[in-house]
Design a protein around this nucleic acid. Structure first.
Lengths: 226, 226
DNA sequence: CTAAAATTTGAACGATTGGTAGAATATTAG
DNA sequence: CTAATATTCTACCAATCGTTCAAATTTTAG
């Protein structure tokens, strides 16, 4: 972090192309979106506290002063990340939970959905679960509420399954949910797009494992689907 | 973080007792152990980068200068945390894995062991999985190796189970292990000692869920044991 | 082209940080 | 008690940080 270099070409960071080279960076116009994307990766890799605005600026080929034209301050970047994660997560899950289908199918789809986000938006998700302590005030409370609410949708699916007699009676939906979400969220610690399995395959495996377990009792295959 | 106050009594932080009060803190003599304990909680709550040595000193009722008599620098505190987590984790798991017992029983005990540490040493574990990026050099490599090795013990238990015909054929031991570890490690995000279930009960639930799943097929109860 | 608007720079600021060193204090041994 | 040792305090440094802002530059509109 925080080296003395600026650009890859060592020049001042501006859009001028100094040689016959076509522009070395197909420069995306600076925007909140671009800042959030770059910051997500840096926050995920090095942590919010250890990432400076100079670092973010450098990643975008811009001085940190420019960032302040697009965001109010460093915390707002973090806020944007949290908002984006929830915006991407909430609605699809709600639709899955409200659809007319058996609880086991809902659970499968919910796991699929959650794994997909954890894999495709790994940096954002890492930040989401790692840096909540750096939020404060009403926004922190809002995020906490929405996160709890997201978890409760999972919980309700499990509860439905029990009530319908499909899931084991006597199990605690809250603990089950924590287990499932833990399984999925842990993706950000190990998943690499170059790995052997696609997010869909991993989700399928987790769903099978959640429904039938690992024991060989002839219930269902746990080999990869898709 | 980093307020202007010093002690709870506002005085300079030393051992002198100024009023008729008996000593307000049954002062534990400063030591690496005490520093690691206090730092673990602060790092877990606020992050490594956002925790200053002043903060740690304040938590111990001491100025940061005193810390440097016991530790080389801030990073060494982090190193001590990582070393302690692995020291506590590795040996018991090795013994479980090497014992003469069926793979399913090994897996149960391994989960029990891992959950216990995640619950009883929650701050340390949080730091362990959150702040690895702040390590560097040979030590970072050593930790990565030992962590991988720890995971591979789980993996081997699953592999054994498949080979013995107890676990489903065709499942990927690596993905299964990541799922199990994710389930357990996620504890640090939600577990509170004041909660409804003991670590042993939670571990029991996770073990049942891992073996038989949530579906109601009359295989095994998932209600709390112990 | 020109002028206005949008965007970025560059430099500076006050605060905080990890780290250091010598003086001060507390503890222990004789 | 005294001297030696162990521990902590105080004050300071250099670096880095988030933030601000006027000036410079680029982009857009007419």
């Amino acid at each position: 972090m925080s080296q003395k270099t600026f650009n890859s070409n060592g020049s001042r960071p501006n859009r001028k192309v100094e040689k016959g080279q076509e522009e070395e960076r197909p420069r995306l116009r600076l925007s909140q979106q671009a800042i959030v994307a770059a910051a997500s990766e840096l926050f995920a890799r090095n942590g919010f506290g250890a990432t400076s605005l100079d670092d973010i600026g450098e990643a975008l080929g811009v001085t940190k002063g420019a960032l302040y034209y697009h965001v109010k301050n460093k915390e707002e970047i973090l806020k944007l990340i949290f908002t984006m994660v929830l915006t991407l997560s909430e609605e699809p899950l709600r639709q899955i939970a409200e659809a007319e289908q058996p609880p086991a199918e809902k659970l499968r789809q919910a796991i699929q959905h959650h794994v997909e986000i954890a894999a495709d938006r790994s940096p954002m998700m890492t930040v989401f679960y790692r840096e909540e302590a750096h939020l404060s005030g009403p926004f922190a409370r809002e995020i906490a509420t929405r996160k709890k609410s997201y978890e409760r949708v999972f919980e309700r699916i499990v509860s439905e399954g029990i009530a319908a007699g499909h899931f084991k009676p006597g199990l605690d939906p809250k603990i089950a949910t924590y287990g499932i979400l833990g399984m999925c969220n842990w993706l950000s610690q190990w998943y690499r797009p170059s790995g052997a399995y696609s997010p869909a395959q991993i989700a399928d495996f987790f769903a099978q494992m959640t429904e039938f377990g690992l024991m060989n009792s002839g219930q269902g295959s746990v080999s990869s689907g898709q």
